[in-house]
Protein backbone atom coordinates (compact mmCIF):
# COMPACT_ATOMS: atom_id res chain seq x y z
CA UNK A 1 0.00 0.00 0.00
CA UNK A 2 2.76 2.41 0.89
CA UNK A 3 4.44 1.48 -2.41
CA UNK A 4 1.27 2.45 -4.20
CA UNK A 5 1.03 5.77 -2.38
CA UNK A 6 4.69 6.43 -3.07
CA UNK A 7 4.11 5.89 -6.81
CA UNK A 8 1.03 8.10 -6.76
CA UNK A 9 2.87 10.96 -5.03
CA UNK A 10 5.77 10.75 -7.47
CA UNK A 11 3.28 10.54 -10.32
CA UNK A 12 1.33 13.58 -9.18
CA UNK A 13 4.41 15.79 -9.06
CA UNK A 14 5.55 14.64 -12.51
CA UNK A 15 1.97 15.05 -13.69
CA UNK A 16 1.79 18.60 -12.34
CA UNK A 17 4.65 19.51 -14.67
CA UNK A 18 2.81 17.92 -17.60
CA UNK A 19 -0.29 19.84 -16.55
CA UNK A 20 1.58 23.16 -16.76
CA UNK A 21 2.85 22.34 -20.25
CA UNK A 22 -0.62 21.10 -21.26
CA UNK A 23 -2.25 24.36 -20.15
CA UNK A 24 0.17 26.14 -22.48
CA UNK A 25 -1.00 24.03 -25.42
CA UNK A 26 -4.62 24.84 -24.55
CA UNK A 27 -3.94 28.58 -24.14
CA UNK A 28 -2.59 28.81 -27.69
CA UNK A 29 -4.75 26.25 -29.47
CA UNK A 30 -8.07 27.52 -28.18
CA UNK A 31 -7.42 31.07 -29.31
CA UNK A 32 -5.61 30.55 -32.59
CA UNK A 33 -6.01 26.91 -33.65
CA UNK A 34 -2.24 26.57 -33.54
CA UNK A 35 -0.68 23.45 -32.06
CA UNK A 36 2.58 24.77 -30.70
CA UNK A 37 5.15 21.97 -30.79
CA UNK A 38 7.74 24.36 -29.34
CA UNK A 39 5.83 24.36 -26.04
CA UNK A 40 8.37 21.94 -24.50
CA UNK A 41 11.23 24.18 -25.59
CA UNK A 42 9.73 26.98 -23.49
CA UNK A 43 10.39 24.76 -20.46
CA UNK A 44 13.94 23.91 -21.56
CA UNK A 45 14.79 27.57 -22.22
CA UNK A 46 13.42 28.49 -18.79
CA UNK A 47 15.49 25.82 -17.01
CA UNK A 48 18.70 26.65 -18.86
CA UNK A 49 18.38 30.43 -18.57
CA UNK A 50 17.57 30.13 -14.85
CA UNK A 51 20.81 28.11 -14.53
CA UNK A 52 22.71 30.89 -16.31
CA UNK A 53 21.28 33.46 -13.92
CA UNK A 54 22.16 31.44 -10.80
CA UNK A 55 25.65 30.87 -12.24
CA UNK A 56 25.96 34.63 -12.45
CA UNK A 57 25.14 34.87 -8.76
CA UNK A 58 21.49 35.83 -8.98
CA UNK A 59 19.44 34.40 -6.06
CA UNK A 60 17.34 31.37 -7.05
CA UNK A 61 13.83 32.90 -6.82
CA UNK A 62 14.93 35.97 -8.79
CA UNK A 63 16.64 33.75 -11.38
CA UNK A 64 13.42 31.79 -11.77
CA UNK A 65 11.36 34.94 -12.29
CA UNK A 66 13.88 36.28 -14.81
CA UNK A 67 13.67 32.96 -16.66
CA UNK A 68 9.88 33.35 -16.88
CA UNK A 69 10.36 36.78 -18.37
CA UNK A 70 12.91 35.51 -20.91
CA UNK A 71 10.55 32.78 -22.07
CA UNK A 72 7.54 35.12 -22.28
CA UNK A 73 9.61 37.34 -24.58
CA UNK A 74 10.72 34.34 -26.65
CA UNK A 75 7.11 33.16 -26.96
CA UNK A 76 5.85 36.57 -28.09
CA UNK A 77 8.71 36.91 -30.58
CA UNK A 78 7.91 33.47 -31.92
CA UNK A 79 4.29 34.47 -32.44
CA UNK A 80 5.24 37.74 -34.11
CA UNK A 81 7.99 36.37 -36.36
CA UNK A 82 6.84 32.87 -37.21
CA UNK A 83 3.07 32.63 -36.67
CA UNK A 84 1.55 36.07 -37.36
CA UNK A 85 3.01 36.50 -40.89
CA UNK A 86 1.28 33.33 -42.14
CA UNK A 87 -1.75 34.40 -44.16
CA UNK A 88 -3.83 31.23 -43.95
CA UNK A 89 -2.97 29.36 -40.81
CA UNK A 90 -4.38 25.88 -40.50
CA UNK A 91 -3.68 23.44 -37.71
CA UNK A 92 -1.56 21.31 -40.05
CA UNK A 93 0.52 24.29 -41.19
CA UNK A 94 0.97 25.27 -37.56
CA UNK A 95 2.31 21.82 -36.65
CA UNK A 96 4.91 21.91 -39.42
CA UNK A 97 5.82 25.50 -38.64
CA UNK A 98 6.18 25.09 -34.88
CA UNK A 99 8.10 21.84 -35.37
CA UNK A 100 10.58 23.91 -37.35
CA UNK A 101 10.74 26.55 -34.62
CA UNK A 102 11.18 23.83 -32.01
CA UNK A 103 14.08 22.27 -33.94
CA UNK A 104 15.73 25.65 -34.44
CA UNK A 105 15.39 26.47 -30.73
CA UNK A 106 16.88 23.11 -29.75
CA UNK A 107 19.84 23.71 -32.06
CA UNK A 108 20.32 27.13 -30.54
CA UNK A 109 20.24 25.72 -27.01
CA UNK A 110 22.77 23.03 -27.98
CA UNK A 111 25.10 25.70 -29.38
CA UNK A 112 24.82 27.89 -26.31
CA UNK A 113 24.73 25.36 -23.49
CA UNK A 114 26.34 22.23 -24.93
CA UNK A 115 24.98 18.71 -24.60
CA UNK A 116 25.27 18.07 -20.84
CA UNK A 117 22.24 18.21 -18.59
CA UNK A 118 22.21 20.14 -15.33
CA UNK A 119 19.74 20.64 -12.54
CA UNK A 120 18.70 23.88 -10.94
CA UNK A 121 19.11 23.94 -7.14
CA UNK A 122 15.90 22.78 -5.47
CA UNK A 123 13.70 25.22 -3.64
CA UNK A 124 14.28 25.32 0.14
CA UNK A 125 12.59 22.97 2.59
CA UNK A 126 13.14 19.56 4.11
CA UNK A 127 11.88 16.29 2.71
CA UNK A 128 9.03 14.64 4.58
CA UNK A 129 8.05 11.09 5.41
CA UNK A 130 4.31 10.72 5.97
CA UNK A 131 2.98 7.23 6.73
CA UNK A 132 5.95 5.54 5.11
CA UNK A 133 5.68 7.70 2.00
CA UNK A 134 8.60 10.02 1.43
CA UNK A 135 7.87 13.32 -0.25
CA UNK A 136 10.64 15.55 -1.47
CA UNK A 137 10.37 19.24 -0.67
CA UNK A 138 10.70 20.05 -4.37
CA UNK A 139 7.71 17.81 -5.10
CA UNK A 140 5.64 19.76 -2.59
CA UNK A 141 6.76 23.00 -4.22
CA UNK A 142 5.79 21.61 -7.63
CA UNK A 143 2.33 20.58 -6.46
CA UNK A 144 1.73 23.81 -4.55
CA UNK A 145 2.92 26.16 -7.28
CA UNK A 146 1.06 24.23 -9.97
CA UNK A 147 -2.13 24.47 -7.92
CA UNK A 148 -1.69 28.23 -7.51
CA UNK A 149 -0.89 28.69 -11.20
CA UNK A 150 -3.84 26.57 -12.32
CA UNK A 151 -6.22 28.57 -10.12
CA UNK A 152 -4.70 31.83 -11.41
CA UNK A 153 -5.19 30.70 -15.01
CA UNK A 154 -8.80 29.69 -14.30
CA UNK A 155 -9.47 33.06 -12.65
CA UNK A 156 -7.85 34.82 -15.60
CA UNK A 157 -10.18 33.14 -18.11
CA UNK A 158 -13.30 33.20 -15.92
CA UNK A 159 -13.11 36.58 -14.21
CA UNK A 160 -11.00 39.08 -16.12
CA UNK A 161 -12.15 41.01 -19.19
CA UNK A 162 -8.93 40.17 -21.05
CA UNK A 163 -9.39 36.45 -20.32
CA UNK A 164 -12.99 36.62 -21.47
CA UNK A 165 -11.91 38.41 -24.65
CA UNK A 166 -9.54 35.51 -25.37
CA UNK A 167 -12.39 33.07 -24.85
CA UNK A 168 -14.54 35.15 -27.18
CA UNK A 169 -11.84 34.85 -29.87
CA UNK A 170 -11.76 31.09 -29.32
CA UNK A 171 -15.52 30.67 -29.47
CA UNK A 172 -16.60 33.11 -32.18
CA UNK A 173 -13.61 34.62 -33.96
CA UNK A 174 -15.75 36.59 -36.42
CA UNK A 175 -17.95 38.11 -33.74
CA UNK A 176 -14.86 38.88 -31.67
CA UNK A 177 -13.41 40.88 -34.56
CA UNK A 178 -16.73 42.67 -35.01
CA UNK A 179 -16.66 43.95 -31.43
CA UNK A 180 -13.11 45.12 -32.04
CA UNK A 181 -10.98 42.38 -30.47
CA UNK A 182 -7.93 41.91 -32.67
CA UNK A 183 -7.16 38.22 -33.25
CA UNK A 184 -3.46 39.03 -33.66
CA UNK A 185 -3.32 40.78 -30.30
CA UNK A 186 -5.24 37.89 -28.76
CA UNK A 187 -2.77 35.38 -30.20
CA UNK A 188 0.13 37.41 -28.81
CA UNK A 189 -1.38 37.37 -25.33
CA UNK A 190 -2.07 33.63 -25.67
CA UNK A 191 1.58 32.97 -26.58
CA UNK A 192 2.78 35.04 -23.63
CA UNK A 193 0.52 33.04 -21.29
CA UNK A 194 1.71 29.75 -22.83
CA UNK A 195 5.32 30.87 -22.52
CA UNK A 196 4.87 31.66 -18.84
CA UNK A 197 3.20 28.30 -18.21
CA UNK A 198 5.92 26.36 -20.02
CA UNK A 199 8.57 28.33 -18.17
CA UNK A 200 7.05 27.55 -14.76
CA UNK A 201 7.13 23.86 -15.72
CA UNK A 202 10.76 24.19 -16.78
CA UNK A 203 12.10 25.84 -13.63
CA UNK A 204 10.10 23.52 -11.33
CA UNK A 205 11.11 20.28 -13.05
CA UNK A 206 14.79 21.15 -13.46
CA UNK A 207 16.00 20.12 -9.95
CA UNK A 208 14.40 16.66 -10.35
CA UNK A 209 14.66 15.84 -14.04
CA UNK A 210 17.70 17.92 -15.07
CA UNK A 211 17.51 20.32 -18.00
CA UNK A 212 19.40 19.99 -21.24
CA UNK A 213 19.04 21.28 -24.78
CA UNK A 214 16.54 18.61 -25.83
CA UNK A 215 14.59 18.05 -22.63
CA UNK A 216 11.70 19.98 -24.17
CA UNK A 217 11.05 17.20 -26.66
CA UNK A 218 9.64 14.57 -24.32
CA UNK A 219 8.12 17.11 -21.95
CA UNK A 220 6.36 18.83 -24.85
CA UNK A 221 5.00 15.57 -26.24
CA UNK A 222 3.70 14.49 -22.85
CA UNK A 223 2.14 17.89 -22.26
CA UNK A 224 0.47 17.53 -25.64
CA UNK A 225 -0.92 14.12 -24.69
CA UNK A 226 -2.21 15.57 -21.42
CA UNK A 227 -3.88 18.45 -23.26
CA UNK A 228 -5.43 16.02 -25.74
CA UNK A 229 -6.95 14.06 -22.85
CA UNK A 230 -8.88 17.23 -22.07
CA UNK A 231 -9.84 17.82 -25.69
CA UNK A 232 -7.18 20.53 -26.27
CA UNK A 233 -9.56 23.36 -25.38
CA UNK A 234 -10.11 22.94 -21.65
CA UNK A 235 -7.81 24.27 -18.96
CA UNK A 236 -9.38 21.99 -16.37
CA UNK A 237 -9.14 19.05 -18.74
CA UNK A 238 -5.46 19.79 -19.32
CA UNK A 239 -4.70 19.86 -15.59
CA UNK A 240 -6.59 16.63 -15.00
CA UNK A 241 -4.96 15.06 -18.07
CA UNK A 242 -1.49 15.95 -16.81
CA UNK A 243 -2.10 14.49 -13.36
CA UNK A 244 -3.65 11.29 -14.74
CA UNK A 245 -0.78 10.84 -17.17
CA UNK A 246 1.82 11.39 -14.46
CA UNK A 247 0.24 8.87 -12.10
CA UNK A 248 -0.26 6.25 -14.83
CA UNK A 249 3.39 6.58 -15.86
CA UNK A 250 4.57 6.27 -12.29
CA UNK A 251 2.41 3.20 -11.62
CA UNK A 252 3.55 1.57 -14.85
CA UNK A 253 7.18 2.24 -14.04
CA UNK A 254 6.70 0.95 -10.50
CA UNK A 255 4.67 -2.19 -11.08
CA UNK A 256 5.54 -3.20 -14.63
CA UNK A 257 8.91 -1.95 -15.79
CA UNK A 258 10.45 1.48 -15.66
CA UNK A 259 11.39 1.04 -19.31
CA UNK A 260 7.73 1.37 -20.25
CA UNK A 261 7.31 4.76 -18.56
CA UNK A 262 7.60 6.84 -21.71
CA UNK A 263 5.40 4.47 -23.72
CA UNK A 264 2.39 5.16 -21.49
CA UNK A 265 1.79 8.62 -22.88
CA UNK A 266 1.73 7.46 -26.46
CA UNK A 267 -0.42 4.41 -25.88
CA UNK A 268 -2.82 6.71 -24.06
CA UNK A 269 -2.75 9.18 -26.94
CA UNK A 270 -3.68 6.50 -29.46
CA UNK A 271 -6.49 5.19 -27.27
CA UNK A 272 -7.91 8.67 -26.72
CA UNK A 273 -7.71 9.74 -30.36
CA UNK A 274 -9.45 6.53 -31.47
CA UNK A 275 -12.08 6.38 -28.74
CA UNK A 276 -12.75 9.97 -27.65
CA UNK A 277 -11.16 12.48 -30.04
CA UNK A 278 -13.06 15.27 -28.27
CA UNK A 279 -11.22 14.58 -25.03
CA UNK A 280 -11.99 12.39 -22.06
CA UNK A 281 -12.88 15.04 -19.53
CA UNK A 282 -15.99 17.12 -20.02
CA UNK A 283 -18.00 17.78 -23.10
CA UNK A 284 -16.15 19.37 -25.96
CA UNK A 285 -18.41 22.33 -26.61
CA UNK A 286 -18.68 23.35 -22.99
CA UNK A 287 -15.07 22.80 -22.14
CA UNK A 288 -13.49 25.61 -24.15
CA UNK A 289 -10.88 27.27 -21.97
Amino acid sequence: MSDFLQFVVAGLSAGAVYALVAMGFVAIFSVSGVINLAQGEFAAIAGLSALSFTDAGVPLPVAMLLALLVVAVVAVLMQRLAIAPVRRMTTLVSIILTLGVSTALKALLLLIYGPQGRGLAPLPGSDLVIGGVSVRAQELWILGITAVVAVAVAVFYDRTVLGKALRACAEQPVAARLVGISPKAAATVAFAVAGLLGAVAGVLASPIQLTQWDSGLLLGLKGFVAATLGGLVSIRGAVLGGLVLGVLESLTAGYVDSGYRDAVAFVLLIVVLVARPGGVFGRHAEARV
Binding site: K164, R167, A168, E171, Q172, V174, A175, A176, L178, A285, E286, R288
Partner: peptide
Protein backbone atom coordinates in the same frame (compact mmCIF):
# COMPACT_ATOMS: atom_id res chain seq x y z
CA UNK B 1 -22.26 44.76 -37.34
CA UNK B 2 -24.83 42.33 -35.93
CA UNK B 3 -23.86 39.18 -37.82
CA UNK B 4 -25.98 36.49 -39.41
CA UNK B 5 -26.82 33.68 -36.96
CA UNK B 6 -26.22 36.06 -34.02
CA UNK B 7 -22.81 34.59 -33.12
CA UNK B 8 -23.07 35.26 -29.42
CA UNK B 9 -20.17 33.99 -27.28
CA UNK B 10 -21.88 30.81 -26.07
CA UNK B 11 -20.04 29.89 -22.86
CA UNK B 12 -19.80 33.48 -21.67
Amino acid sequence: HVPENRLVFPTL
